[in-house]
Design a protein around this nucleic acid. Structure first.
Lengths: 358, 358
DNA sequence: GTTAGCACTCAACTCATTTGATTGCTAACG
DNA sequence: CGTTAGCAATCAAATGAGTTGAGTGCTAAC
């Protein structure tokens, strides 16, 4: 990226930014005369035209048709976003602490966040629940709701609760279930799925005694539950209807596509997973800020034509990592969304749960 | 309703049905010539015109403007739907058993159902989880995940699991929690919220001894959880994007409205509650079939302009009652949807859970 | 390197016209 | 008296010619 800095002289940069900024506001192709008036450069429209024609050649902007103004290309957007990121890194984020600090139920917090995000930005917003494979297990409880059945309850950090009813392998009575519960907690409490070593497993199995079958069943279920939760996180969304605010997305096909992505959470899950797997250092111009911007067909949003995606990773502490993001038209207010998202990220990173205060 | 039967002579009935049927297919106003050809009555368009003009006077159809064809009014739809219901009652439903009979997890079943319903009908579909106040409690388990905290797990019929972490009133240790658990199960297991009498409560409180505060806490939480679940059921949806198939709904305002109703489940919950509270005998022409049809502004859908709602109540046994429904344009294929819904209802009414088979 | 000037382009708008589906009415028919 | 053919009247929607206006590219002069 550094090599490219010199491709554009200062004046071209000013003009390009002015074009994109204006386009973000109006959604209409931008003409030379507009820029001549708004850029602050005191140049005539003719001169601007010459520069614009250069910018077209370099691929930063295009003309929808001969006698129309110019519209940014993906390359243009990319440039714009990258330059915003650089500026923001300089003047650090002054996170205004505007939201609740202590929340009992994680789910509440996330719903609250995503709703705020959508209504603040007027785009569609989503937030994923925390990664289940890196979150620590607080407590595991087995129980016998009916003969031959084992009820397994798994409490994770942040009081996220997972549970499942299993069909027992060996006969198991209430007291035995309690003994096994204590034994399992001794080994597993405080660990995340990733921290369970083979040694721990063997230790557990040795102590399982006659209940080996059931213990294996439970361990498998725990693993399955957490692994499955990894590719199948809870996802909360808000503001899907904001799609209709933007004419370029409200054409029937695209809108239907977006809406169904928001309804069936599967595709959002894929998206979150892809975003997670791309390292922070990666293409999306994250730098130190931890905000990623995917424009147009880039990366995870290649199926969402004419959309851009802005995401942030949050970490609530104790390995509870998740993703929060905004989906909008390519012509979105990148600057504002990035700021809001940075704010949210800071909020979440500093959130503490009342239940943890003991 | 019986009085009205004679308002329309046989020929008018045939013509009216033909008009509505054609309108359902095409979505375009229907002209006299079309009916003259399609009705099978061998009448000229002029005669049809005379009859149509009568039907307009009687309020079954209207003209969007002079020189346009005719379009059914809500009264027209109502007539059409009622006559379908009568015919169907006669030739009983021959429920083709096309779906799974045994499903472990209720949530899976419901998701499966709603997805099928949406893709089969091409409308938007929704299904509510079972009523929590009439579902029986199978098993209640208390536990102490951390000092000063009580983890309450409530297993309902169908292995629906609810849970909550409470802040303890009195000190409570693991063994005490177990004792209380056994005591509570003795009293509550097998009952639904509605079946808990004051006597049961007093009996429990007497036996609570030193743990009175915590027991009260737990009982309140159970009540709160189940009552809250009543107005706040799980709702699964599918096929929201089908809205775009129908031009009359895909105008921006209406679509945005519908979409946000489907995203934020609150309004669907209200809808389900309203549907539930209207008795089966009520206005929506249910008769014996247990299918309700709400046309246009009728009842629960008064906010969803130009939409109709068709619902069925299901009962999985042991008080697990819920609602399944389809939302589409007024011009929807009532006949088909009602049949599909009847089928689903039958499936659900007969579904049995493997976990119950012991 | 910058600018004024001008011919040219083309989507978008306007407005009159045409088209075609459909009605209501009337007079004739059986 | 119900039915029908015929016809003028209506009106949304499609068509198309003409106008507008934003914007460009090019050239010649500053």
């Amino acid at each position: 990226m550094e090599i490219m800095v010199n491709e554009l002289d200062e004046r071209k940069v000013v003009i390009l930014k002015a074009i994109i900024k204006n386009y973000l506001e109006t959604g209409e192709p931008v003409g030379s005369r507009t820029i001549s008036k708004l850029s602050g450069l005191n140049l005539s429209s003719a001169t601007i035209r010459n520069e614009m024609s250069d910018l077209v050649e370099m691929g930063y902007i295009v003309q929808p048709h001969t006698s129309a103004g110019r519209v940014p290309t993906d390359k243009g957007y990319r440039f714009y976003v990258d330059s915003i990121i650089q500026e923001n890194d300089r003047r650090m984020s002054e996170a205004t602490s505007l939201m609740v600090q202590r929340v009992d139920k994680l789910e509440m917090l996330l719903k609250q966040m995503v709703r705020f995000l959508a209504s603040d930005t007027n785009y569609a917003a989503l937030i994923s629940g925390p990664s289940t494979s890196t979150t620590k297990m607080k407590y595991l409880q087995l129980s016998v709701p009916a003969p031959g059945q084992i009820l397994m309850i798994l409490v994770l950090e942040g009081n996220v609760i997972k549970n499942e009813v299993l069909e027992a392998i060996e006969e198991i009575d209430y007291d035995t279930a309690m003994q096994v519960t204590v034994m399992l907690n001794n080994h597993l409490s405080g660990l995340s799925l990733r921290e369970i070593t083979p040694k721990i497993i063997t230790d557990i199995m040795v102590q399982a005694g006659k209940q080996q079958g059931n213990v294996k069943l439970v361990l498998d279920a725990v693993t399955e539950l957490l692994e499955h939760g990894e590719t199948n996180r809870d996802i909360f969304t808000s503001g899907a209807k904001n799609i209709f605010r933007y004419p370029e997305l409200s054409d029937v096909d695209k809108a239907a596509d977006l809406i169904s992505a928001f309804e069936e959470k599967d595709r959002l899950n894929e998206l979150v997973n892809e975003v997670t797997s791309l390292t922070v250092a990666d293409g999306a111009g994250a730098s130190g800020s931890g905000i990623q911007v995917y424009i147009g067909g880039e990366g995870p949003v290649k199926n969402l034509r004419d959309c851009s995606l802005i995401t942030a990773h949050y970490e609530l502490g104790d390995g509870m990592k998740g993703v929060i993001g905004v989906i909008g038209p390519k012509r979105m207010d990148y600057e504002k969304v990035m700021q809001t998202l940075q704010n949210m990220k800071d909020q979440l990173d500093n959130a503490r749960f009342t239940a943890d205060d003991n």
